[in-house]
Design a protein around this nucleic acid. Structure first.
Lengths: 211, 211
DNA sequence: ATATATACATACCGACCGGTTTGCATTCAA
DNA sequence: TTGAATGCAAACCGGTCGGTATGTATATAT
C-alpha cells in the first residue's frame, strides 16, 4: 500500500507534465506509464480510464496550485502586489519549466478541455472545474483591488474575474502558437491594467513585489 | 479536371467543418473522406498529407472570411459600427451553425494549432497565419477608432489589435469548455470596451449597425 | 505456514490511425 | 481509334491507440 500510493502519485504528476507539453489526445497511456516507471497493469490498477486519470490529475494539480495561490494572495500583500504576484507567477511558470521547444505552455486542463471530442465529457468537466477555480481567485483579487480604490469606474468583480481568466488563456494560447514568450510578458500586464481599468498612477509594476 | 476541383474543394470545406467541431487530432482522414463523399484515394490524390490539407483548408477558409471581413469593415460604416459588426459576426458565427451539442465553436485553426504535437509544424504555422491575418484587421479597426476620437488615453494599434485577438480567443475557449454562449455574448462586448478603453459615452451598442 | 488481497508486469486484443498500392474508369491528345 | 494522363475507389499496410486478461511477486491476515 505504501508503494501503491507512490505509483499513483507518480502517474498523476507524469500525466500533468506530459499533457502540459502537448495535449490530452497527444499523449498516450503507454508513454505516461513508461515515464512514470510503470506499465499499463499499474495504470489500470489505479485508474479506470485515461479520462479518469486526467480528472484525478487535474484535482491533484489544483491542490498544489491552491497553496501557491494562497501564498501569492496572502493578506500580507497589498492588492496591487497580489496582482503583480499573479502576473509574475503566470510568466515564470512558462519559461522556468522550458517545455521542450515551446516556450509557452499554457494551462493543460483548460486547453485540453476545449479540444477533446464530445464523448470525453470528463475531460471537459475537469477543465471547467479548473477554470472556475481560477476565476474564484481572480474575483477575490478584483474585490480587493476595488476595495483599495485603485480602479476607475464601476467594476463588477464576478465579470472582471472571469474576463481576466479568459484573457490570460487567450494570451497564453497566442504565445504558444507563436512560440513567443516575450509577447506574453508584455501583453499580460497591459491587458490586466486595461481590463481592470486600473488608475494610471498605479499602472507601473509594483517594485519589490513577491518572494 | 472539372470534377477534380470539385472534390478538392469539397474536401477543404468538409475538413474545416469537421475540425471546427472537434479538433485536428480528433478528426480522421477516413471521416473527412466519407463526409466529403470520396475515399482515401481521392484524398491523397489531392493532398500529400493530412497536415497539408489542414494548411490548404485554412487558406481556403481565409479567402471567404476575408471577403466577409471586408464587408464588415467597409468604409461605409463608422469605426464604432465596424466594431459592432465584428462583435456581432463573432457571436452569430457561433450559434447559427449550432455545432453538434456545443454552442460555441471557436476558431478551428487557432485552437488546433495550439494543441497539436510539435512535429506537425505545418498545423501550427497555419494557426499562426490565421492569427496574424485576424490581428491585421483588428489593428486597422483600432487605427480607425483612434482616428475618430472615441478612445481614451494612448492607444498603440498594434498592441491593442493583438490583445483583441487574444481576448476573443480566450472568450471563445471559455465559452466552449463551459458550453455557454451567453457568457460569450456578454463578455465579448464588455472586454472590447475595456481593452480599447472606449469613452463611456460610446459604450452602448451602436443601434442599427450591420446588415 | 497458509490463504488472501494488493500491486503490479507482460502479453495481448480489436479498432483505428495516416498513408500506400493497385486497378479501373473517364478524359483528352494525337 | 488509340495511348497516355487524370481522378478516383478499394483493398491493404505497419503502427499505435485505449483497454483487457493473465500471471506473479509481495505483503498482510489468520
Amino acid at each position: 500500500m505504501a508503494r501503491g500510493a507512490d505509483t499513483r502519485e507518480k502517474l498523476l504528476d507524469t500525466a500533468i507534465d506530459l499533457i502540459w507539453r502537448s495535449s490530452y489526445d497527444g499523449v498516450g497511456v503507454n508513454e505516461i506509464c513508461k515515464r512514470a516507471g510503470t506499465t499499463k497493469g499499474g495504470f489500470y490498477h489505479h485508474f479506470e480510464t485515461k479520462a479518469d486519470l486526467f480528472y484525478a490529475a487535474s484535482e491533484h494539480y489544483w491542490e498544489g496550485k491552491q497553496r501557491e495561490l494562497n501564498d501569492i494572495f496572502s493578506p500580507t500583500y497589498t492588492p496591487l502586489e497580489q496582482m503583480e504576484n499573479l502576473i509574475n507567477m503566470i510568466v515564470e511558470k512558462q519559461d522556468v519549466d522550458q517545455y521542450d521547444d515551446n516556450p509557452v505552455a499554457g494551462c493543460p486542463f483548460f486547453t485540453s478541455g476545449s479540444q477533446c471530442s464530445s464523448d470525453e465529457e470528463k475531460v471537459r468537466l475537469a477543465a471547467v472545474k479548473m477554470s472556475d477555480n481560477a476565476v474564484m481567485y481572480n474575483v477575490g483579487l478584483v474585490h480587493a483591488l476595488k476595495g483599495s480604490g485603485v480602479l476607475n469606474g464601476d467594476a463588477n468583480p464576478e465579470v472582471l474575474g472571469r474576463m481576466l481568466q479568459q484573457f490570460i488563456q487567450g494570451v497564453l494560447i497566442y504565445g504558444r502558437v507563436h512560440r513567443d514568450l516575450d509577447v506574453v510578458k508584455a501583453d499580460l500586464r497591459e491587458g490586466f491594467c486595461r481590463i481592470l481599468d486600473l488608475k494610471q498612477e498605479y499602472r507601473q509594476p509594483v517594485l519589490q513585489a513577491a518572494e
